[in-house]
């Protein structure tokens, strides 16, 4: 999958969809379930569908000018740790689920990587699955 300088080598067992939004920015969604048509940019419509072993990720791009700000001072795609996930770290909190959010700049473009785990109790495996996905991402 490739769109506007963002490419993704999709791991087995994942589905993905990408689009350019009204701002001309890339919004990439990937999940271990079939992606519903309506998802919300940070997956509010996907989260209720996740099973305990499932994962959803959103790669969301911001305005280029934002790379100058402290929020996007981290460089490069993140390596996700199980401890990065928190039960309340969700736009819409759901029992048992957890999320993790990473703001960063790659190739002069500011992004947020947001991941939702179907079960916080299985965050070790979930974080590993997210990292597998992220390793397949490239931003030019």
């Amino acid at each position: 999958m490739r769109l506007s300088g963002v490419s993704l080598a999709l791991p087995a067992g994942w589905q993905a969809a990408a689009r350019r939004n009204e701002s001309g920015h890339v919004v990439l969604h990937a999940a271990t379930i079939a992606l519903p048509r309506s998802r919300g940019d940070f997956g509010s419509d996907v989260a209720p569908l996740l099973g305990a072993d499932d994962v959803f990720c959103s790669l969301f791009e911001y305005d280029r000018a934002s790379i100058e700000t402290v929020l996007f001072s981290a460089r490069g795609l993140p390596v996700v740790r199980p401890s990065d996930f928190a039960v309340g770290a969700l736009q819409r909190s759901r029992p048992g689920q957890s999320g993790a959010q990473f703001f960063f700049t790659q190739a002069g473009r500011p992004f947020c990587l947001f991941a939702i785990l179907g079960s916080h109790g299985r965050r070790v495996a979930g974080a590993a699955r997210v990292n597998t996905l992220v390793r397949g991402m490239a931003i030019a």
Partner: peptide, 18 residues
């Protein structure tokens, strides 16, 4: 609905705040 529960940041505002 919840108040001060969800640790989530959409990220477009006050980006000068780490």
């Amino acid at each position: 609905r919840k108040v001060c529960c969800n640790g989530f940041r959409y990220g477009q505002c006050n980006q000068q705040v780490r």
